[in-house]
Amino acid sequence: MEYANTIEPITLEQFMPQVIRFKMDNWRVAQLCAVRLPDGYELSYSFVKGYDMRTLRLTVATEESVPSITQVYPGAFLQENEAVELFGVKIESIQGDYHDKLYRIARPTPFKEKG
């Protein structure tokens, strides 16, 4: 049994329309992951339907802001807040924004610097 497990690069313009298409098509948001690049972030949004998983891959610059998907998938607020707080990704208008008070860690954005 082979099921889809793909990573698809996507641009910021195509991103929200694709998320809405997923929603219309009854995909559920499975996972949101940020990776620190030397001069930006790599954001992966995974969606699952049935046993298939598709991951959208956004690459943004450090100061570039990303729209929040919580307007479409409210359940993603925890993971979006996590990306903001631990990595310092700029995510705009999260529904249920904790304003860096999710984990209340002593050191701000620990994942922003390597090592």
Binding site: A30, Q31, L32, C33, V35, R36, P74, G75, A76, F77, L78, Q79
Partner: peptide
């Protein structure tokens, strides 16, 4: 470089 773990409870809280 990066290890990420999305646990079931993270998904079940909403």
């Amino acid at each position: 470089e990066r290890f990420r773990l999305r646990t079931p409870t993270t998904s079940n809280i909403p």
